[in-house]
Design a protein around this nucleic acid. Structure first.
Length: 433
RNA sequence: UCCUCGGUAGCUCAAUCGGCAGAGCGGGUGGCUGUUAACCACUAGGUUCGAGGUUCGAGUCCUCGCCGAGGAGCCA
């Protein structure tokens, strides 16, 4: 049975046939008696060639009057052509104009500033570069989920609205929830821990929100986070899972997204290197290395952005930084068995200066120690009743991590700024479109 | 929140020491039978972010404000 129209990506296999394509006119050139209609339908692009002497006069005139991004239905013969990027062109015999814009299309062929592009994000997404990024984002998410699914993980989503505060009150979006305060989730982890006690191997995946007023190329106020949580996994098994997941994602992107990576002019050599084993540095080793390289970050402090960049430049693949000082990390992390000033945690830093893509830890599973950490941090004890219950009814060694999807997309795509990794980026001064 | 930079045509940007506001793209008109950000010719297009100030004269200097970007801290 014939489909009523054909996707542009399928045209190479329809050579010699007359087909109809539905899409948009993303550019047009004309040489007097030949129009070259550049068509786009979301699946691909193709050039429609309309020769004046081969079509009715009025059709040629209609085509000439098309504005960019007109929606059209084009009928033509699929013809092999060496000059075409996809190998085929369409010899146009019919054209139905679905809608011809009455204004010029705002996004031109020359460069635009970032402010203008973000104001026109709804149109910017149509450009080939943005299409490539979104296809790679889709691939990364798809592969992350199938990897976990195939390894026996259960998706147990966490709430977006919450009354309890995850990691401390700063950076939370607060809103009215009938007669009480609610907060937008900044992590699903605490819920994932509860789910792990129910199902063993779980993950949650959803949007998370940070109200911090950060203005950098690696921050969004809304971003998607993948958070596996595994019962009876310790610190080491946790890092091993992270390594396998990241390697799987990168390998599959290289396998399926070559055209997109080429469009982005991404040098794939650093991605080819993403294979086990990743490098590991203990926090103290990282500080020593940084001091040798000229950093002045004192032992005991968290690593700065510049520090992370310096460190990743020393390695040809992602690097784990393990066991940070307790005082710079969250209350729920498991105390190091050999050094009570440290915790069993890890940050995974992507190469080429992209920095932290994963933060993970073994969780504190001792009731009394967790409670005293909550008190030390002056967190509202009553909000953690249910979380403490997990340590009361069959406590268990468990570990997990959070992977920021946009950070991974930015790294894999080689983007200068994380905002291009999200279809609708939310930053401190930008809520629309 | 702090530091730095910027705001000139629809868009991207020029404008020397404070001295006639200019180019490319896009638009319009015409030309071109293989264009690839097509090309060629002509053409229209301006409250130089706003409010004050200095000056014979301000896009340019000063003050305040608004908007945006880059970075820091924090984090994924």
């Amino acid at each position: 049975m014939n489909a009523p129209w054909t996707a542009i990506k399928d045209l190479p296999s329809a050579e010699g046939q007359e087909v109809t394509v539905k899409g948009w006119l993303y550019n047009m050139r004309s040489s007097g008696k030949i129009h070259f209609l550049q068509l786009r339908d979301g699946s691909g692009t193709v050039q429609g060639v309309m020769v004046k002497q081969d079509v009715p006069e009025e059709l040629f005139v209609v085509a000439k009057g098309l504005w960019l991004e007109a929606s059209v239905e084009v009928t033509g013969m699929v013809r092999k052509d060496e000059r075409a990027p996809s190998g085929v062109e369409l010899t146009v015999t019919g054209l139905v104009v679905l809608q011809n814009p009455t204004d010029e299309y705002p996004i031109g062929k020359k460069d635009h500033g970032i402010d203008f592009l973000l104001d026109h994000r709804h149109l910017w997404l149509r450009s080939s570069r943005q299409q490539a990024i979104m296809r790679i984002r889709d691939r990364i998410i798809w592969e992350a989920r199938s990897f976990l699914h195939d390894d026996g993980y259960l998706l147990v989503d966490s709430p977006i609205l919450s009354g309890a505060v995850g990691e401390g009150a700063s950076g939370l979006f607060e809103l009215d929830y009938f007669d009480e305060k609610a907060y937008l989730a900044q992590t699903g982890q605490l819920y994932a821990e509860a789910a792990a006690a129910a199902f063993g191997k779980v993950y949650c995946f959803g949007p998370t929100f940070r109200a911090e007023k950060s203005k950098t190329r690696r921050h969004l106020t809304e971003f998607w986070m993948l958070e596996p949580e595994v019962a009876f996994y310790g610190h080491k098994e946790n890092m091993d899972l992270q390594e396998r997941l990241v390697c799987h994602i990168v390998a599959r992107v290289l396998e399926h997204c070559r055209p997109e990576l080429r469009m982005l002019e991404r040098d794939t050599t650093p991605l080819e290197n993403v294979k086990p084993p990743f490098h590991h540095l203990q926090y103290g080793e990282a500080i020593d290395m940084l001091h040798r390289l000229g950093s002045e970050t004192p032992y005991g402090s968290d690593l700065g952005n510049e520090d992370e960049t310096i460190l990743t430049q020393q390695f040809d693949r992602p690097v784990f930084i393990e066991c940070y000082p307790k005082k710079v990390k969250a209350f729920y992390m498991k105390e190091h068995p050999e050094n009570p000033d440290l915790v069993l945690c890890d940050d995974l830093l992507a190469p080429e200066g992209y920095g932290e893509i994963i933060g993970g830890s073994q969780r504190e599973d001792d009731y009394d120690r967790l409670l005293s950490r909550i008190r030390e941090e002056k967190l509202p004890e009553e909000a953690y009743d249910w979380y403490l219950d997990l340590r009361k009814y069959g406590t268990f060694v468990h570990s997990g991590f959070g992977m920021g999807i946009e950070r991974v997309v930015a790294w894999v795509c080689g983007l200068q700024h994380i905002r291009e990794a999200s279809p609708w980026p939310r930053t401190i001064y930008r809520l629309n479109p």
